[in-house]
Amino acid sequence: MSDAATTDTQAHLRQSQRPRAKPDPAVEAAIRIGLLAALLLLCYRIIEPFVVPIAWGIILAVATWPGYRRLLGLLRGRSVPASVAFVVIALLVLLVPVAMLSGTVVHGAEWLAQGFETGDLKVPPPPDLSGVPLFGPELESLWRDASTNIQDTLRALEPQLKALGGWLLHLATSAGMGLLHFVMAIVIAGVLLAKSDTGRRAADAIGWRLAGTRGLRFVRLSEGVVRSVSRGILGVALIQAVLAGLGMLAAGVPMAGLWALVALLFAVVQIGAFPVLLPVMIYLFYTADLTTAVLFALWALFVGSIDNVLKPMLLGRGASVPMPVIFIGAIGGFIAAGIIGLFVGAVILALGYELFLAWLAEVAPPGAEYRAEMASETSSPAADPAGGD
């Protein structure tokens, strides 16, 4: 081998044996975080259309676990038949009232359209509303005009009716999408209940990974809060809406399904069902026979007041946080994020409340020292307020 080749080989060996420069840790961390963020973003974009049904499925699974456990006992511990039975029962509970009440909406719309076409739609004369403050005289005048010539009254109210029609169309579209999401959520809840042991272990693992033993307690707290909100707020609102809709359906009120949906929204936001039931009561006293009107009035009083009995019994039950914390979190979450915010807001505020109590327990003085300090302050002579002898 020539001397030049030997020299090149030795130079190459010396260069290969030099220590390589270490990569910058900040650059390495930035690349890893960026790749992880991109992966998480892609995963979210893929499951984004299913986020709401999955969230509702988890909520339904947690809320209905006690009932599913009883169903599991009746079927001798067979999880798949119990989950199928749960899905069938839940779909019947959801779809049967919807089908009954939605039929009244279609019938009421057909009745209104036919009345406008034939001119047979009549509005009874108004009662004396002059004593009603703020809007009594204006309402009586509008009612009288509608009773004498409804076509001219509707033409005068055309802009307001167009806005109301757009709102009703948006409400119907939202209700249809919500119904589809609920059907998907029921199926997802059935799958989650069939795999409840795996789901509980996963939730416990996440809680333990985040906060150790306290994380397990937060997992149990979240379960209790979801059940409390589902029973105390959403459950009571559904009971009121269904009972109100059935009462209006039995009394022959047009579009009873629509008014039941409005009653559900009012009950969820804690306004109550009375703002819907009271106009229906007045309508029946002027259009129906006295017996029907009186029976519906009694039924409306019962439906409108049952939340005062059921809500204190169900809200806060099964959770270690006070009922006002759950209530404020649920209502604030609903205002911020809609119906699903009822659960998210209540869980977040309950967890924050527990973290605040844990912080107080850590910074507060020990019990013996605190009692000794209070005893010394109590036994010491009071200072002279005047500052003199």
Score class of each variant (00 low, 15 high):
47 I>S: 09
47 I>P: 05
48 E>G: 12
48 E>L: 12
48 E>F: 11
48 E>N: 13
48 E>I: 10
48 E>M: 13
49 P>G: 06
50 F>V: 14
52 V>Y: 09
52 V>M: 14
53 P>I: 07
53 P>T: 10
55 A>K: 12
55 A>M: 11
56 W>Q: 13
59 I>V: 15
60 L>D: 11
62 V>C: 08
66 P>H: 03
68 Y>L: 00
69 R>V: 05
69 R>A: 13
69 R>D: 10
70 R>N: 06
72 L>T: 00
73 G>F: 01
73 G>D: 04
74 L>D: 06
74 L>S: 05
74 L>I: 08
76 R>P: 00
77 G>M: 01
78 R>D: 08
78 R>H: 06
80 V>N: 06
81 P>M: 01
81 P>W: 00
81 P>Q: 00
84 V>N: 02
84 V>F: 06
85 A>G: 02
85 A>E: 01
85 A>H: 00
88 V>W: 02
88 V>D: 01
90 A>W: 07
91 L>P: 05
92 L>T: 03
93 V>D: 08
96 V>S: 06
99 A>E: 07
101 L>Y: 03
102 S>H: 08
103 G>I: 04
104 T>P: 05
104 T>N: 08
106 V>W: 09
107 H>V: 11
108 G>F: 03
110 E>L: 12
110 E>K: 11
111 W>F: 14
113 A>H: 11
113 A>T: 09
114 Q>E: 12
115 G>W: 05
118 T>D: 15
119 G>L: 01
121 L>S: 03
122 K>N: 12
123 V>Y: 09
123 V>F: 10
124 P>V: 10
125 P>N: 04
129 L>H: 01
129 L>G: 04
129 L>W: 08
129 L>Q: 05
130 S>G: 15
130 S>F: 08
131 G>A: 12
132 V>T: 12
135 F>I: 15
137 P>Q: 02
137 P>W: 03
137 P>R: 00
137 P>T: 02
139 L>R: 10
139 L>H: 07
141 S>V: 08
143 W>A: 04
143 W>N: 06
144 R>C: 00
144 R>K: 09
146 A>E: 02
148 T>W: 06
149 N>D: 15
149 N>F: 02
150 I>H: 03
151 Q>R: 15
151 Q>G: 08
154 L>Y: 02
154 L>P: 01
155 R>Q: 14
156 A>W: 05
156 A>D: 11
157 L>G: 00
158 E>Y: 03
159 P>N: 00
159 P>M: 00
160 Q>F: 04
161 L>M: 09
161 L>E: 00
163 A>L: 11
163 A>C: 01
164 L>V: 10
164 L>N: 08
166 G>N: 12
169 L>Y: 06
170 H>C: 06
171 L>G: 15
172 A>S: 11
172 A>T: 13
174 S>D: 14
174 S>R: 13
175 A>W: 14
176 G>I: 09
178 G>W: 08
179 L>D: 05
180 L>N: 09
182 F>E: 13
182 F>C: 14
182 F>M: 15
186 I>N: 05
188 I>S: 07
189 A>Y: 09
190 G>Q: 05
192 L>Y: 07
192 L>E: 05
